[in-house]
């Protein structure tokens, strides 16, 4: 995605100065001929010496391109989008569920359930037809068991901790066969 792309140096300059205005205003620091405090612009021969020295001062020249404001807005909007994406899992409560041997996974909302039993019912509806006798999760005679990955990235057996603790730490679910569970992940 474009969010992961490194931002353009100009955006970095704008971000450093925390300018709220859409139109960049000329701002000057004490001139130092040698130092390049921001280190943003490369010493490229294609730049005019006047322009290079100006950037060394930390200022930005507005050449009158009307599209600069749009470019400036993009940076903020993409940042906001990235933040909103991070909050989606916490906001909706949806986690991925995969079953060993199946290519396509599902998603369940753990906040819609109040206990392990209702979650087991939903998973039965989603994956139950993969076995003749069904999943029968959390039952002694079942050949399947449900494991989950917590916020620290560790895979744990579902049902060991109280439901309220489970829904706070679960990030991913996996339906595995009971004998496979003995193997380390």
């Amino acid at each position: 995605m474009y969010c992961s792309d490194p931002p353009h140096p100009l955006h970095l300059v704008a971000s450093d100065k925390q300018q709220k205005d859409h139109k960049l205003i000329l701002s000057w620091k004490k001139p130092t001929m040698d130092s390049d405090p921001l280190g943003v612009f490369p010493n490229s021969p294609k730049y005019h010496p006047y322009y290079s020295q100006t950037t060394e001062f930390g200022g930005v020249i507005d050449l009158g391109l009307s599209l600069r404001t749009i470019q400036h807005e993009i940076y903020h909007s993409s940042g906001q989008r990235y933040c909103s994406n991070e909050g989606y899992r916490r906001k909706w409560g949806y986690v991925k569920v995969t079953m060993d041997g199946l290519v396509v996974g599902r998603k369940v909302c753990v906040l819609d359930h109040g206990s392990y039993s209702t979650l087991a019912h939903q998973l039965e509806d989603m994956f139950g037809m993969q076995s003749v006798s069904g999943l029968r999760l959390f039952q002694m005679e079942s050949e399947f068991c449900l494991v989950y990955r917590d916020e620290e990235g560790l895979w744990r057996n579902a049902g060991d901790v109280p439901w309220n603790e489970f829904i706070e730490s679960v990030e991913r679910l996996r339906i595995t066969r009971r004998n496979d569970a003995v193997l380390p992940f």
Binding site: Y2, H8, L10, K46, Y47, H48, Y51, L63, L65, L67, R68, I70, Q71, E73, I74, S77, S78, R81
Partner: peptide, 23 residues
């Protein structure tokens, strides 16, 4: 020919417009 350096900036601006459309 590359002064003022509008070419690279215009390219970044057009890229920004595409991002704006996606945004």
């Amino acid at each position: 020919q590359d002064w003022p350096p509008i070419k690279s900036r215009l390219r970044d601006t057009l890229k920004g417009r595409r991002l704006l459309r996606r945004g």
